[in-house]
């Protein structure tokens, strides 16, 4: 474990807590893409298949359980919870996310670290996570103004993988046989997708103005 990865995990956790706070405090999920949340639940479920087979550390196991439970809770909330469900922008959240699932799975079958069930699903989860934010960014552009908590949620979500990039650079230089190029390349794509959001988020922070993405 290194400071970059720990900071990355904490930033990821903060993003989830901010989203839970938004949904709980405002009893609304307006501006949040259910499709992105479903993709994230799938990412965690397929990435942590080794939850019961490979014990890395208490921290690792606890965080995996937290990520799986919170992502499922958010999807459940947005689908089942009467009050929250009504605020869901159903007509705006129309990204065909099953295409992302199909594409990432096809890529995972072709490009993986080892042609085993677990490794194919691990690679699938890595590719899917890179593009999972797309429905959310599309929804953001369509819904125009963004409430603060949603903006912060997306900011922390993007920042966590940027910290992981630093973690991989650090591990590359400090560990003899470290090569996670699938996660690294995918992480660069993932962070790149946030580039324009980060730009407008920075502008809104600098000008102390509301976060506006150009339609």
């Amino acid at each position: 474990m290194n400071i970059f990865r720990f900071a990355g995990d904490m930033t990821h956790l903060i993003s989830i807590l901010v989203l839970l706070l938004k949904i709980y405090a405002t009893k609304s999920c307006s501006g949040i893409s259910l499709k992105t949340q479903e993709l994230y639940a799938l990412v965690f479920l397929t990435r942590y298949l080794d939850l019961f087979t490979d014990f890395i550390s208490v921290y690792n196991t606890v965080m995996k359980l937290v990520f799986i439970a919170s992502s499922l809770a958010i999807v459940w909330c947005m689908r089942m919870h009467g009050l929250v469900k009504r605020s869901y922008d159903k007509e705006l959240d129309t990204f065909r996310h099953y295409l992302l699932v199909a594409g990432c799975f096809a890529l995972a079958v072709l490009v993986n670290e080892k042609f085993t069930f677990q490794e194919i699903f691990w690679a699938f989860s890595i590719y899917l996570e890179a593009v999972a934010i797309l429905p959310q960014l599309v929804l953001l552009q369509r819904s125009g103004n963004v409430d603060n908590l949603t903006g912060q949620y997306i900011f922390f979500l993007g920042a966590y993988r940027a910290l992981y990039l630093l973690n991989w650079i650090y591990r590359y230089f400090t560990e003899v046989r470290f090569s996670r190029w699938i996660a690294c390349v995918s992480g660069i794509v993932q962070t790149g997708l946030y580039a324009d959001f980060f730009y407008y988020y920075f502008l809104s922070w600098k000008n102390n103005a509301k976060l506006q993405l150009p339609a």
Partner: peptide, 10 residues
């Protein structure tokens, strides 16, 4: 052969 060690990252 190239043994894939367990993924230690989240």
């Amino acid at each position: 052969s190239h043994v894939v060690e367990a993924h230690d990252e989240l």
